[in-house]
């Protein structure tokens, strides 16, 4: 007989808050360590690119931000599906906690891409480009989900609408990922390949392989912090929360 106790505990905001508090310093600490290591390595100790020179180093921000922005969307949509099917309050809080983190990540990817685009392509932005446009749509999807969720004074209908929108938006993720292969785009195809040899030199690839988990951890920490805010907000009239807030301050 499997032990389902942990699953039922997820329904208890008090238990969840205490657990988040216990794990948060570790996740945050590990995130800072990996980010610091990868950024110092990538920005100071990796050789420059043969064509782009030092401009290529933006890869250590741009690629991890984009990768985690896409992955976070799936995590958010899965939370949305769970919220719809099982009506779990926690799933809804996860959805609302991921959305702003994903929006910021998408913005970072767009912004660093534009900064890189000027010296390499000769322009910050091109309209009608499949990769650039689908990424911009992802940004608006994240913003739309936040807006819908908080509409109708945070009622259940707004939350359900946000969950449905997150499910509809999943179709955009494979489009973003494959856009550079399916259509003629100014953006280059992926350098990190899963089925053949990657077209990025190993010494440039190593810091990137640390930066990506670093971004994952940092975003996990940000989502956990957002979860705490959600729990505090939802339980603001409960006596245990008032007691908890007194201990914290």
């Amino acid at each position: 007989m499997p032990n389902w106790q942990w699953f039922h505990r997820l329904g208890s905001p008090k238990w969840l808050l205490i657990t988040l508090d216990r794990w948060l310093p570790w996740v945050l600490g590990l995130a800072f360590l990996t980010l610091l290591l990868s950024l110092i390595w990538g920005l100071a100790f990796t050789p420059p690119d043969y064509k782009q020179g030092d401009v290529f180093r933006i890869i250590y921000i741009h690629v991890p931000a984009a990768v985690v922005a896409l992955a976070a969307y799936y995590a958010m949509a899965i939370a949305g599906a769970i919220a719809i099917i099982w009506r779990m309050k926690v799933a809804d809080m996860v959805l609302r906690s991921i959305a702003p983190v994903g929006a910021v990540l998408t913005f970072i990817a767009l912004f660093t891409g534009a900064i890189w685009g000027k010296p390499t392509w000769g322009t910050y932005w091109v309209w009608q480009d499949a990769r650039l446009t689908s990424m911009l749509i992802l940004f608006f999807l994240y913003l739309g989900i936040i807006a819908l969720h908080d509409a109708f004074n945070g009622s259940a209908s707004g939350q359900r609408a946000a969950a449905i929108m997150s499910l509809v938006g999943t179709v955009n993720i494979p489009i973003i990922y494959k856009s550079v292969d399916w259509w003629a785009s100014l953006h280059q195809p992926a350098s990190i390949k899963f089925t053949e040899e990657s077209t990025i030199a190993l010494e440039m690839f190593q810091p990137l392989m640390i930066a990506i988990p670093g971004f994952y951890l940092f975003c996990l920490a940000a989502v956990m912090l957002n979860m705490k805010v959600q729990i505090a907000h939802n339980s603001r009239n409960n006596s245990w929360m008032i007691e908890h807030a007194k201990i914290d301050s």
């Binding site: 890869i59 392509w121 992926a190 350098s191």
Partner: peptide, 18 residues
């Protein structure tokens, strides 16, 4: 009236390229 450079997906240090 506008010329852009399209970069490819090859990233390597100058020595490797040489």
């Amino acid at each position: 009236d506008q010329v852009l450079a399209k970069h490819d997906e090859n990233y390597m240090p100058p020595e490797v390229s040489a």
